[in-house]
Simulated assay, not measured.
Amino acid sequence: MPYNDSVASRVGARAEVVNAFMRGVYFWMSLGLLVTGGVAWYVAHSEAVLSLFVTPQGGISGLFIGLIIAEFLLVIALSAAISRISATAATAMFMVYSALNGVTISFIFLIYTQASIVSTFLICAAMFGAMSLYGLMTKKDLTSMGSFMFMGLIGIIIAMVVNIFLQSTVLDMVVSVIGVIVFTGLTAYDTQQLRVMGETVPEGDATAVRRGTIIGALRLYLDFINLFLMLLRLFGDRR
């Protein structure tokens, strides 16, 4: 085989590996979103289940707070152990996290109208798709943008904690606007990073590929969910 043909063949094979890797990422991310949406809808429409998370006085129960903490710990555990656990365990942890997240965001169905939830989801999907496509296709290195967006994320977390005590509607609006910008940017950055991961994943190592697709799905899932919630806070119609 001529040298040029051999090189072209290897490049084509590598490109197919990257494409298959990204398809896996989007598949598991979409499945996670489907699980989250299904669980959220079920919890919001089940008085028996809701009673477990809401006190008779209308406050949040200790069980609900425990689930939020469990979610946080599960993300940390999955991210830290992804290179050591089996592909099956990584997949199970991601699915469990998606289900737990469905429980904790189920209250959006009680706060916002169903029509605004659907319309906001569609807007979020369009924005996410456009920025993820940009991250896949652009030749520009988005590392510096990713660092800037990460600093913005830290600022958002601090501001949200402060606003728990201040209860400022203005600060809430500012956080939501900045949040939309941050998670839109992180979508493009994370997608580019996952493309690079796909270019370096070992060929023929199914376990490594599955681990990579699961951690990649988690990153894009978090970008999507947070972008959706920020958009909902800005544009959602309250009941």
Rank of each mutant, 00 (worst) to 15 (best):
Y3G: 03
N4W: 06
V11S: 02
A13F: 03
R14D: 11
R14C: 01
V18M: 06
F21K: 03
F21R: 05
R23K: 15
V25H: 01
Y26W: 02
M29V: 08
S30H: 08
L34Y: 02
G38C: 05
A44S: 14
A44Q: 04
V49I: 15
L52N: 14
L52K: 11
F53L: 03
V54T: 10
T55Q: 02
G58K: 01
I60A: 09
S61V: 01
I65F: 14
I69R: 04
E71C: 15
L73G: 07
L74D: 00
A81K: 12
I82V: 09
I82L: 00
S83P: 03
R84W: 03
I85V: 10
A87D: 07
A87Y: 08
T88K: 13
V96I: 15
V96K: 05
S98A: 15
A99D: 10
S106A: 14
T113E: 15
Q114F: 13
F121S: 00
F121V: 09
L122R: 11
A125H: 09
K139Y: 05
K140P: 06
D141F: 09
L142F: 14
S147P: 00
L153D: 06
L153H: 00
G155S: 08
I156R: 03
V161C: 07
F165T: 14
F165E: 11
Q167S: 12
M173D: 12
S176H: 12
V177T: 10
T184F: 12
Y189V: 14
D190K: 11
P202L: 04
D205V: 04
D205W: 04
D205S: 02
A206E: 13
R210Q: 11
R211F: 08
T213I: 13
I215N: 07
L218G: 00
Y221A: 12
D223R: 08
F224D: 08
L229K: 15
L232N: 14
L232A: 04
F235V: 13
